[in-house]
Every structure is written in C-alpha cells, then in structure tokens.
Design a protein around this nucleic acid. Structure first.
Lengths: 225, 225
DNA sequence: TGAAGGCTAGAACCATCGTTCTACTAGAGC
DNA sequence: GCTCTAGTAGAACGATGGTTCTAGCCTTCA
C-alpha cells in the first residue's frame, strides 16, 4: 500500500511536534507509523534530513491552505487573524498542548547546523508571509489574471503589508512557545486580539481605506493538516 | 578553580543556541568548556536536566536585567522596545546568526516531555512579561515601597499592559525564528518597529496619558549575558 | 512461466548517547 | 602529620542513534 509514505510523514510530524528534530528517532517513527526501516529508506533515501524536509514542505503548505480557507470566510483581515489564532488555541488545547506547528521547532534547532533544512523552513515562512501580506493589501482596481507560481503574490504587496504579515507570523510562532510553556491556550487568543488590533489599525490609517474584505478567490479548500 | 561551573554553563548555553536541547551532548559540552565529565556531574548531580534548568534560569535572569537596563535608559516604553529588538538584531548578525535566546528553543523541545524544564521556561517567560508589563503601566501616584519578591510587580499591572507585554515577548521569540531561518536580522528590526507602534498606540489611547517615561528605579545594572 | 520492480522486513554496524563509578589531586582545618 | 572535602580525571556501561544491506514478498507485464 502506497500510503505507508503518508503514515511515516504523519508520525514524523507528530514526533517533531512533541520532541523536536533531534529528539525524534527514526526507529520510533517507523514504530509509530507501523512501517519498517526498509520502507522509510525506500521512500526517503536521503534519510532523516530528507524526511524532515518533506514534513516541513508538506505541512507548511497545509497551513497556508488552512489560513487562506479561514481568510476567505472572514469579513476582513482582522477577523481572519482572530479566527486563526483562536483556532490554533483550540487545537493546542484539544491536543493537550502538543505543539501545533512542527516547523518553528525544527527551524530553531537546525538553523545553525543544516542549511538545507534552514532553507526549507525559510521557504515555508515566506509563503505564509506572502499569503498574509496579500490579504493586508488593498486590491488594485484591475487585477491581471496571470497564472503565476503560487508563491508569487498576484497583487503587488506594500512594504507595510509585508511588515505586518511578518509580525503576525512571528507572534504566532512565539505565542505557541509561550502558550505551551504555560499550558494556557488563552495566551494565543490574547495575542491574536493584539494582532487583529494592530492590523485593523494599520489598514484603517495607512492606505486608501478599502474597508470591505477581499473578494473571494480561487479556493484550494482542504481539511485540517 | 570554581569557575568550571561557569564555563560549563556558558558552553551549554552556546550549544543550546546552536543545536537545541536534544542536539546538545554532554561530552561536547565538557570538551567545549575544557572540563571533564566528573566535574560536570559534580556541579550538576541531576545530569543534563539539571544543567539545562540552570542555563534557563540564569540566562533568563540575565535577559531580564538587560531589558531593564535598556528600558531605564529609553525615553519611553516604545523606545525601549525598539532598542531591545535592534539590539537583538545586532547580536544575531554579529554572531553569524547563532540563536540569541536558548530558552525559546528548549521550551519548544521539552514542553511536552519534561515538566520540570517546561516549568522553568514558563517562569522565565513570566518574569520577562512582568518586567515589560510594569513598564507599560502608568505609575500610580503613591507607590508603596514594599520590598516584595522581585517577580511580583511593585505596581499593580493592568490586563491590557500584560496582554501587550505577552505579545511583545511572543513577537520577539517568533522573530528570532524567522530572522534565523532567513539569515536576515532586519526582520527583527521590522517586528520591533511594529511592536513599538502597537505599544505607543495602546498607551496613548487606553490609560490616562502619562506620556513621560517612568522614573529611574533601583538599578541592578549588569553587562550582557 | 519468468523476469522486473515496488515495497516490506529486520538483522547488523559502528558511533555516540547520558550516566556511573573508582581513583586521584589539592588545599583547609585541626 | 592526618583527615576531610571539593574538585578533577576518564574508563566503562548498557542503551540507542542513523544508516546499510541482504533477503524475500507481491503484483504487473511480457
């Protein structure tokens, strides 16, 4: 069955969220996935590094889809932020404070020692920042419908929007650290409120006030990662 | 010589910043510290966990002192935030993107698996949030000079100030992740500006505007950690 | 029927892990 | 001198790390 690869990815994801990159053992992963070492090295000939890279890329993409899904349904960017942070708080609590995001943990562990993995985490963070920054940018009157690569934003994004998006992603990753350390998910909600306030204030004062939300876009809807 | 303990702590600190908790080996630490395994277990009979706890507590306290030092010299809370984030960016760049803070990394790695270490990281974060929240709280007319324990703020701190402080600490920890992943220290400066804006806006609108900075307090000045 | 290829299976390898343990040195106090 | 304690030194231990490798199981296709 070809879903062995998926089971291995899922088990690795969970172990990263629980113990981080170095704390995750290949043998534990295979055991948890109900797979064998042979299978793991069959699907990931590059070993642990390749496996980690796949987890980072695939769950990074899943989170981006999740954010866009939430943002599409929210009335405005600030509401999207609140909803996303509240959702993260819920997941955190439901999972008994298992880490929500394996990428931040791995990013910190390997940034100084493994350049391939560092680059992979950076690409994921970039993608998230792009997705958020797009939502923070008022739509230009005529949007050219060029089917460019998904990581390149369709509309040009202002420096202000990008700074805002960067801050939101940072606050999310940092908030996960604080909330897990205290085993208190409301910390994430609190930070989400602050971020929503920051975003709505910036959007109200800085650009020509287009208070309406963004138009619905091509949906790549999916379930939770 | 009794500074063996200090050398071990410093080497562990650096290894945590480079490789995280699980990536740090006792033997590497002793080698880097110019100490022996016997000495390490002499000073830290609790082994790796006790060593990590000491690193967390001691460098956590050093960062708090550093923040208070910067805040004492800044004109207002927003300027303090900017200065602190800029300082972190500078350290990050000067150290060739070695992690600035070992605590956040360890916190994420162990929160699900080691309750003692999780509690230690939580205490440090709490202490930072207290220190920042105090600066965000306008001084009450008469401050009772009760020499309480240092972690208890002398002035009662509003929920708003605490939420603000929590957000700033989260943004700092998350910003370190992003900046290291991209090897770009300006990310920290950007986030610092956003946080300064958030803080000054909140302080200007919410409480009775006491635009002057806080009075100089009893200094526990110290050098960089 | 036979060959090929995708996938499973797990023993074996050596390196390294955190920890324990015994032996030793140096200096203080009596 | 002797004793005691703080600290140094590193060999040895069993467990576990990531990886390699050979063998075998199915399914597909000729």
């Amino acid at each position: 069955m070809a879903d062995t690869r998926d089971r291995i990815l899922a088990a690795t994801n969970e172990s990263f969220r629980r113990r981080g990159y170095h704390g995750t053992s290949i043998k534990d992963v295979t055991r948890a996935a109900g797979a064998t070492i042979g299978s793991l090295y069959h699907f990931f000939p590059g070993g642990k590094t390749a496996l980690a890279e796949a987890v980072i890329i695939e769950s990074g993409a899943a989170y981006r889809r999740l954010f866009e899904l939430i943002a599409d349904e929210a009335a405005d960017p600030a509401a999207a932020i609140t909803a996303f942070f509240d959702g993260a708080a819920l997941v955190l609590e439901d999972s008994d404070f298992l880490d929500v995001c394996p990428i931040g943990t791995v990013a910190r562990e390997v940034a100084s020692t493994d350049d391939d993995l560092r680059t992979a985490t950076d690409a994921v963070f970039r993608s998230w920042i792009d997705a958020a920054a797009e939502r923070f940018t008022p739509i230009t009157p005529i949007t050219p419908i060029t089917p460019t690569t998904p990581t390149t934003p369709a509309t040009p994004v202002s420096d202000e929007a990008r700074a805002l998006a960067t801050t939101v992603v940072a606050a999310l990753e940092g908030g996960l650290i604080l909330a897990r350390a205290r085993r208190d998910a409301t910390i994430l909600q609190t930070i989400g409120r602050q971020m929503a306030g920051l975003v709505s204030h910036a959007l109200a004062t800085r650009p020509p006030a287009s208070s309406s939300g963004r138009p619905p876009r091509s949906r790549t809807a999916r379930t939770r990662p």
